[in-house]
Every structure is written in C-alpha cells, then in structure tokens.
C-alpha cells in the first residue's frame, strides 16, 4: 500500500510540475486570471458599492449567493456534528451499538466488585484537584474576554474599511466563548450560552442572510440584489443601500459562524454529552 501510494503520488507530482511550466509567471499582472473579471471589481467597486475593501464587497455583494451557501454549509456541519456525536443521558442519538464499550464496562464493574483500592482513591483525588478552578487563568480570562469580544465586534463592523468581516469576527467570538469554556468549565458556559440558544442563533444568521435576499425579491429586484433596499433604509441612495446591506449580511454570517463553531467545540470536547469539557 505504501509503495503504491508513494509511486502514484510521485507520478502525479511530476505530471503537475511539468504542467506548471506552461503557467504564467508568478506575480504576472497580466495573466489570464487577472485580466477579465477581476479588473471590473478593482475599477468599479468603489463607485458601485462605496466599500473600499474589495474583498468584503465581492464577498457580500457580487458573490453573495456563494457566501450564503457557504454559511449554510457551516450551519449544516454544526447540525451534522449534532447528529453524529450528541448523546442524551448516555444514549447516542445516532443509535450505535457500542459493543466494545459495553465489553469494557463489564470488566470495569468486575474490578469494582473487588472493592475500591487505594489507587482509585488517589486517582479520584487527583481528578478533584484538576477540576478546581485556577485563579490566575480565570482572572486573566475575565480581563481578556471583553477585549476579545469588543475586537470581534469591531472586526465585523469595520470589515468595509479594513481586513475583516463576518467570518473572521464570528470566529473570534467563538474563540472567546471557547476560552471561557476551557477556563470556567463547559457546564458553566453552557449555563450562560445554552445549546438551544446557539442553535437558534445559527438559524437566525442564515435567516438574516436569506431574508435579505427574499426582501430584495419582494421589492422587485433579483435575489440578493441590494440596491432596491434603499426604499427601506432611511435617507440612503442606492449605492449606500448596498453598503449597508453588506453589513446586515455580515452580521448574519457572524451569528452563524460563532454559534456553530462554539457548538462544534462543545460537542467535540465533551464527547457529545455536553457535561464535562476538557
């Protein structure tokens, strides 16, 4: 298997390396990829949308359909993890057999029957010691957490003028929640941000994105063609309506990414029962 794999990989690699010689030079400004569509984005993005960051404009406006479905993919991934791993009261939702685990459990019960020895007690004491909250970590997290969240909100809101946007801001928000879950325990964090709420937030994000598109449809334009939304926002023209709609859509993306990545971490770290984290 290994030699066959190595040979096929080498063969593919050599073929690709020969093919690359026909590519345009690295960093060539007039290569085919840089000459047709992208020049339109660079030249006209500011006039058409009033957003200086071209990446945000292309992400949330010109290719909004793509972004909407990518957001849905993140949402579906969260749901898939829920379906695969989530278990309630020890029984998995997926209905697996777990025959090996059952075999292991019966062995463990037999050992328990011999009476609890000293080693088990020491292990339990060590676990209790490890489960104690660490003062330094908790204080640091308490100080860091508002800064992280504020920065994430800044990244979402300022994505029009600087690198950033819904995806990055959502990931930073999720990272903040994961930090809290690591230092304060998953259960405490889930008491603050319950599973149900984060699923609802994930739903809401996709709904905001798709709802903006449907609103455009209702006002007589194409799906996600934002310029008609000028009729809804107070005192804006068609160009600024596109800029504002991008912010709305990015907020939706941020909701979905934050809640789904947080949920993925909660399921992965607690092995699906959402009781004890790392």
């Amino acid at each position: 298997m290994k030699t066959i794999g190595l040979l096929s990989v080498l063969f593919t690699g050599i073929l690709l390396m020969i093919a690359v010689v026909d590519f345009p030079d690295w960093g060539d400004p007039h290569s085919p990829a840089n000459s047709y569509l992208s020049t339109h984005y660079i030249e006209d993005v500011e006039e058409e949308t009033a957003v200086p960051n071209m990446v945000t404009a292309v992400l949330a406006d010109y290719r909004a359909f793509d972004t909407m479905l990518e957001t849905s993919v993140v949402f579906v991934a969260g749901i898939a993890i829920f379906a695969i791993l989530r278990s309630i009261d020890g029984t998995s939702l997926a209905g697996t057999t777990r025959r090996l685990q059952r075999r292991g459990r019966s062995k463990k019960e037999k050992r328990k029957g011999q009476g609890r020895n000293r080693r088990d007690e020491m292990v339990a004491a060590a676990e209790r010691e490890a489960a104690k909250p660490d003062l330094i970590v908790q204080t640091t997290v308490r100080l860091l957490m508002p800064t992280i969240q504020l920065f994430a909100l800044y990244v979402i809101a300022h994505g029009h003028h600087s690198p950033g946007g819904g995806f990055q801001g959502g990931v930073i928000l999720a990272a903040g929640l994961i930090l809290v879950a690591m230092s304060f325990g998953l259960e405490n964090t889930l008491a603050q941000v319950p599973e149900k709420l984060s699923l609802q937030l994930g739903n809401l994000g996709v709904l905001i994105f798709a709802g903006t598109g449907v609103l455009c449809l209702l006002l007589g334009a194409n799906f996600l063609d934002y310029h008609v939304l000028a009729a809804i926002y107070p005192a804006t023209d068609e160009i600024m309506a596109r800029s504002h709609s991008m912010l709305v859509v990015e907020i939706g993306v941020g909701f979905t990414v934050m809640s789904m990545l947080y949920l993925i971490y909660a399921n992965l770290s607690s092995h699906g029962d959402l009781k004890k984290g790392l």
């Binding site: 690198p163 950033g164 990055q168 990931v171 990545l261």
Partner: peptide, 15 residues
C-alpha cells in the same frame, strides 16, 4: 491577501 491571512490566523492556528 490580508483578509485570508486574518481568517487563517483565527481559524487555522486557533480553532
């Protein structure tokens, strides 16, 4: 590619 770098720093190296 500053946006991509930002995303990779948050996602690839963090999450």
């Amino acid at each position: 590619a500053v946006d991509v770098a930002f995303t990779e720093a948050a996602v690839g190296a963090g999450l």
